[in-house]
Amino acid sequence: MLALSRILARRLYHPSALEHQLAHSFAPLTYGPGSTQFKVLEHALNKHVPSYGFNERALVASLNDLDLGPSLLSVIGASNSPSFLNASPAVLELIKFHLVTKRYALTKELDPARTSSPAEPPALETLFHRRLELNKPIAPHLTQLLSSLSIPGEFLVQTALPELHRLSDDMVYFSKEPDANDFAWYSKRIALSCAFVSSELFMAQDRSANYADTFEFAAEKLHNVSKLGQYYNNTEEYMWYTLLMSVNLAKSQLTRS
């Protein structure tokens, strides 16, 4: 339970971005769109990952495209520990970059801190659908991506899980989905994260035209998420009702005897 709250704790208080500057515009990335690191990763993700996948070849190809030396490869991954099985720190950074920038892309038109005329909050289903759409270019490499994300270790705890939680939190916050002030806050986000991961796993195997099966699968998973919040609240409500009724019953028995 403490481990859970440690992962969730990384999503902290959000000061009003209209009044306070943000330390990093793409937090938790510590570099902005102006930096070389950002440009290389963005180029690699858009141009080379769709054909090569998440590996060093994609990064080297984009370093070549941008006329940068191969030594940058070790700079790019400097924030990740090198002890990771098989994957180089630079590739891990590429994966992190994919997760973070796709999450920000999802809410670009909805966040008043990033647009002067934010659009009406969409349904949760719409955001969920849109996020899966963003996976289409890299869908052939999803299996590899998901297996890199799920290897137990520092990357999973420091990056993969917190980023998944942030995605769910963003989807609830920027949609018109009702949010909760109690335990349902957690159950909703956890259910949403599970629904997203299973939809991605489905997408990785999906051979249907334009991933139609994936979106159908996702819609059904999501339907259960919305119901889950209601289930939890109804259960708690019912238990209170039962508790108060039994106390009343006990009291009336006592006064009668």
Binding site: S16, P112, P118, A180, G229, W240, Y241, M245, K251
Partner: peptide, 25 residues
């Protein structure tokens, strides 16, 4: 005693917030 129980129950012990409080510029 029934009267006293109706009060807390009617408050709703756990209520989903339906109004979103996103920031407007």
């Amino acid at each position: 005693l029934r009267k006293s129980v109706s009060r807390p129950a009617s408050r709703g012990f756990s209520v989903l917030k339906s109004l979103k409080t996103t920031e407007s510029p």
